[in-house]
Design a protein around this nucleic acid. Sequence first.
DNA 1: AAAAAAG
Length: 509
Amino acid sequence: MTSFSDLNLDPKVLKAIEATGYTTPTPIQKGAIGPALLGRDVLGIAQTGTGKTAAFTLPMITLLGKGRARARMPRSLVLAPTRELAAQVAENFDTYAKGSRLKKALLIGGVSFKEQDRLIDRGVDVLIATPGRLIDHHERGKLLLTGVEIMVVDEADRMLDMGFIPDIERIFEMTPFTRQTLFFSATMAPEIERITNKFLSNPEKIEVERQNSTSETITQVLVEHTPKTKAMAAKDKRDILRAIIDRDKALADNPLRNAIIFCNRKVDVDIVAKSLKKSGYNAEPIHGDLEQSHRTRTLDGFRDGSITFLVASDVAARGLDIPNVSHVFNYDVPSHAEDYVHRIGRTGRAGKLGTAYTLSVPSDQKYLDAIESLTKSTLPRGENPWSPPGAAGARPARNEVEEEEATAKRSTSRTRSRSRKPVEDKTAEAPVSAPAPEAPKGDAPRAQTPRNAPHKDDRQDRDASDARTGGRSRGGRGRGDDRGPRVVGLGDHVPGFIEMSFEERRGES
DNA sequence: AAAAAAG
């Protein structure tokens, strides 16, 4: 078995690796580090979570150990598609370059030029950048790329998706053709292939197992829901989300400690985050419209556990390495099947268990088909722990209580008489207070989660994973597919949209 | 129907 010490890395780098506790290189590291140290170009076909970042940072630090940086002429360049990813790479350099004197600069948008200019002027060995800001600096004449000895392109397929390929080509052309190139992509789309043919010379090709097969440490669950009306889908999904969260906090098998909740649109990120917060959950949104400093703060908060629920756009779908994410939710089914793989890959990392829920409504069918054909699997259908208020045979959904309270506060007295609702009797045993406090960061005292009382029976009779995935066709309870047409009035039953704030309603369409 | 990145 290979260990890092067999890889000819700088002793200082080895020491830094040792300090992190890693002993054995991952396949991509094993394959890439050797050739990179020999000065070869490397074409790595690998997804994040495979140890890709270290596969290029470790040899880079070793190679750059000799030599010194000159003003405005960085000796190496790493390109990443998003600011967060660039920042993550920068952190990796900090970790592994501890014993060295290498200077680095992080050039990303959304922050001031001033500090970045200062660093460039002073001379850097490693420049880590997003394409836009890098080109901006170059155009302002502050930066020369003619001294670049090593250039890294990370997440090239994502760059392609984001339309960065022309920028990448431009940047390639700014660097000397004698440079060494380390190029990483999760896929080899034709356009990617063209670029690599053009800019890499006789690369060592390393392909590690595609993760389209999705990690075995991730339990995937599809929760299907048919809303009464299309307009109710979003609100129903928020209720379902909360119900699953509350239920999974108490699981014996990978209990929910925290979660990333993905939405397809930025507005929905905001809405879902707000709705969770309003219900007492420790949630924060993250997407590209938020100020960079805010994004950074939020991500840090989620990493250190001070934020429990990260509601995110696909800005957080790829590459971000956040250890210890117990759950991922696809609040929306991603419309690109690959994004599904990337999103759920945020959990179940480093051999830990992860659970990935996908909430779907009938109109998502074609995207689900695409996901299932990409992953070559059928997503296990799981039980929907929530049923809409007033559904025939519905078990008491705790949200009815909350919603009723919320509605009562919001609306002036309605015609319906709340006291007559049979639901009230059923839920009397369930706590009526605000939602349970967030699961603490560490080990949680789950025994005292009365919130889950209504589901207790299920949990006793089945093991945890069965409770999650087993309930599809059992007992005809729940989703109400067989319900006949019913008269909906304001007597016993209140249509969902009535219970929504105007703000929420606006968010629906 | 979208998100991301340079403003």
